[in-house]
Amino acid sequence: MAGLPQIGEPPRAGRKRALPLLELLSFPILLLVWQVLAMVLAHRLFPSPIAVGQEMLRLATEGKLLTDLSKTLWRASLAFILAMLLGTALGILLGRKAWLDRLFSSWLLVGLNLPAIVVAIALYIWLGLTETALILAVVINKVPLVATTIREGVRSFAPEFDELALAMRWPPAKRLRLIFLPQLMPFVLAAARTGLSLIWKIVLVFEVLGSDGGVGYRVSLFFQFFDITGILAYTSAFILVVLAIEYGVLRPIEKRVLQWRPAQA
């Protein structure tokens, strides 16, 4: 058993170096699996990634792909920012003030379990098929999730650090910077990541339900013509944008903010 790693043994350097390479290979492998499946099935309703890529390029240059993408992105970004701001503020309040938590925790529970589609339909009825209704519906769906994550985070704060701050007579701004925000950030990032993935999906569903453009709206049009290549082209373009945000924005922020954490094996 000499050559086998024991429980608790750190991963070997070689294995550690291979991890980024595996991540890099992940998507090419997915594309390869897709391509092989498309070749095996050889059906017009299961286009290959190459065909989808060509359609994406065509829709971007000749169609409305970029306009639709930017429309959906705008809606999702605005809803995301509003939901994060409101949810974080609410989560902090509920985490800090027990009486507020007692008063509103059942509201939060209702919010968490309210079907997203019901919120959207109700708001479309009340406010009409408008941009405001769509964004508000997304925000209402997302806020309880953010607030719950942040509330649990605030509850888990280490009280020892508050004692340290008291002993050192730190002013409130210093406490905020040195104790509060660093403890809060992992939860904000977790809420942002889950929030973003949820918001993309909700926005698309709401666009299908009623809007004048956007990825969801266009996908619903393609659906009427059983144009699976168009649907996958739009979906792939959308996924590319999501990946760009994940790798270009979220991960660098996470790396910077959480650099103090022990590296995961």
Binding site: E160, F161, L164, A167, M168, I179
Partner: peptide
């Protein structure tokens, strides 16, 4: 403020 050495190190991990 005093110099205070707590029973646990209480260093800020970040």
């Amino acid at each position: 403020p005093p110099g205070f050495l707590f029973q646990d190190p209480r260093l800020l991990p970040w």
